[in-house]
Amino acid sequence: MAKLKDLVMEPEHLSPGHRLCPGCGVPAFMRLALHMAGKNNVVVCGATGCLEVSSTIFPYTAWNCSFIHNAFENAAATMSGVETAYRALSKRGKVKAPYKFLAFGGDGGTYDIGLQSLSGAMERGHNMVYVCYDNEAYQNTGNQRSSSTPMGSNTTTTPVGKNSYGRKGFRKDLTGILIAHHIPYVAQATVDNWKDMMRKFERAFEVEGPAFINVLAPCVPGWKYDEKLTIEISRLAAKTCFWPAFEVDNGKWKLNYKPKEKLPVEEFLKPQGRFRHLFRPENRHVIDMLQAEVDERWADIVARCETSPS
């Protein structure tokens, strides 16, 4: 894998000047991710969302590579058209340059409204990387609940009130759904572990066929924390096993990070305003339920990785 000091010398696909929030982890990992396409040209397709609106306010664009935005729910379908065009035009000798394709969406555009489009594109086997930057709610429009929002989160559509402790129910296991597609490569990553992240994007671009990476993307205004804490909160997500870093490479499960000491989920919740109310005595049971969910999913992933044939 390339060294960071070499990567920083390469031209950027995503340039500064975009209007994402200070402290947002998304542009940081997206810049590095696109470096992993190597010497290939890249086309990026963005679902409607934070990164898309903040990077392409007409007449400006932060993208030095080709970029297309179509709508909210169809980044994967749109990119499947672009990727197919590339194959068709290469076959007919009209395009000669090598290209890689990266589509992205937030959790709203991926877990919810874009799930069908994503599933179809993955099943058809298009040679593309799809990355979900999961900030656990519709953050572009102001923290409305999505199917990725953790239990107990105080969102603008699941507000805490006399009869409400926030979002009810558990997060959808999107990574699990993608694994069930039996595509060449699926991974989860956190923005604090850039080396692990880079290796994953390198692998995702390398495999023939679809690859999916789900990145936990802490959101300063939605999660309500101090903007300098993005990397720290990301690290706590990994250390509490709230967001396990693992990958499934051609059917082989591999755990990429196992904390020396698994921290209680409270450590991840504490710095975030969206969970503040959970620390009231009457909401203790919500934290317990969250902990049970985290434990169960973690145990499942660990077991699968341990029993996966090498």
Partner: peptide, 12 residues
């Protein structure tokens, strides 16, 4: 329609 749009935008 989304794929057709993407494909046409890619020059096909």
């Amino acid at each position: 329609m989304s794929a057709t749009l993407g494909s046409q935008a890619a020059g096909a």
